[in-house]
């Protein structure tokens, strides 16, 4: 279990979900004559002028609005994603410039499949907890790609979640502790220069998602001497609707604990933002004294688990930026033709 020397917490949080959606049955209409069972209802689709940089900027502006600090007070901007617009050129510097924090700031991009964002969160805890930094902005954001016709195409979506970490005495939710569990598991990967990722067949599911998440969550609860019923809410990485519900049941969490942070049925798998946007949604409804357990998952594979305790500052800060529900309710459905045009899947010849 990892705990910083100086207590650390979230002083601001912000989410962003694009306006557009494609229904799972619209994708099934194209590829399976509408016959296949869909893993979710719909997924979010980034607009034609959106990418990981732009969605990170909006989530970060929301987090800053809630934090009450000025952008130039940030000491680091770290963005976790598997869909950075450039292979070489950091997203972090563009986001830092947009927020007005340059030049005296650390900026870097993180990579660990769907848990790149939580890696940035853990690193931010270390920076603030060691007093190397007062405030760190950690972001998980993705505009994920799925190969046309692949099972992944039903779920690979877009979203961003941003958190400003700071000293616990200024926070709206303190991070009590975290654990990281990683193993070399080839469940899902994308080789350099390839446009779409692939699944490692039998490794998906049991030895990957379930093993890593159950390991991290059990260890964290054991070290903190907690039981599932001690938490108000539980947020697990959500690649679809079924996996987090099954993992929660195995771990002893109820559907009621899971519900506020379970966004995947309506927006799909936002990858690096999946567990973290679920945390934002839970913070939107949390009351002082509530506790939240969060576990990310990244293919390759690993899981970071966190234990949060919310305090009274949530009440005055949550309405300083749009709630997650505002973005969830703002939705315009597009058909498969518009989707492939916007997502760059048309070969123009």
């Amino acid at each position: 279990m990892m705990q910083p020397d100086r207590p650390v917490g979230l002083i601001g949080y912000g989410v962003y979900i694009p306006r557009y959606r494609i229904a799972a049955n619209e994708i099934a209409r194209i590829w399976t004559d509408g016959q296949s069972g869909a893993p979710i209802e719909a997924k979010s689709v980034p607009g034609p002028d959106e990418d990981t940089v732009t969605i990170s900027i909006e989530a970060a502006r929301n987090a800053l609005a809630r934090s009450g600090i000025r952008a130039e007070q940030l000491n680091a901007i770290w963005i976790g994603s598997e869909s950075h617009p450039y292979s070489v050129k950091p997203s972090g510097t563009i986001v830092a410039e947009a927020l007005g924090t340059t030049p005296w700031i650390s900026a870097a991009d993180w990579e660990f499949a769907c848990k790149a964002g939580s890696e940035a969160l853990t690193a931010g805890m270390g920076m603030v907890g060691s007093r190397m930094a007062e405030y760190v902005l950690s972001i998980g954001a993705d505009t994920a790609q799925g190969r046309p016709g692949d099972a992944l195409e039903y779920t690979a979506s877009a979203g961003a979640a941003a958190f400003i970490l700071g000293p616990a005495d200024e926070c709206l939710a303190q991070i009590e502790a975290t654990v990281s569990y990683v193993t070399d598991t080839p469940d899902f990967f994308r080789r350099a220069d390839r446009p779409y990722p692939v699944h490692g067949n039998r490794f998906t599911g049991e030895p990957a998602y379930f093993h890593q998440i159950q390991s991290s969550v059990k260890r964290l609860m054991h070290e903190l001497d907690r039981q599932p019923q001690d938490y108000t809410y539980a947020i697990l990485h959500q690649p679809n609707a079924k996996f987090p519900q099954a993992a929660a049941k195995r771990l002893g969490f109820t559907p009621e604990q899971l519900a506020p942070g379970l966004l995947s049925p309506k927006i799909g798998n936002t990858y690096s933002a999946a567990a973290l946007s679920g945390l934002c949604a839970a913070l939107d409804v949390a009351q002082p004294g509530d506790s939240i357990l969060v576990a990310s998952y990244g293919s390759g594979a690993g899981s970071d688990a966190y234990s949060f305790v919310v305090n009274e500052k949530i009440l005055e800060r949550r309405h300083l930026a749009p709630l997650t529900s505002v973005y969830l309710e703002r939705k315009t459905f597009v058909d498969y033709a518009v989707y492939v045009k916007w997502r760059g899947k048309l070969v123009m010849g």
């Binding site: 607009g47 002028d49 959106e50 990418d51 940089v53 732009t54 900027i57 909006e58 617009p85 450039y86 563009i94 947009a98 749009p322 505002v326 973005y327 703002r330």
Partner: peptide, 26 residues
């Protein structure tokens, strides 16, 4: 105002970002 991608200047060019506007979120 929102900051969006204004233009893609090609595979070997830069991505251009800048301001656009959208109806205010409710």
């Amino acid at each position: 105002m929102v900051t969006r991608r204004l233009k893609d200047t090609g595979e070997d060019g830069v991505l251009v970002y800048g301001y656009k506007f959208r109806p205010v979120l409710s």
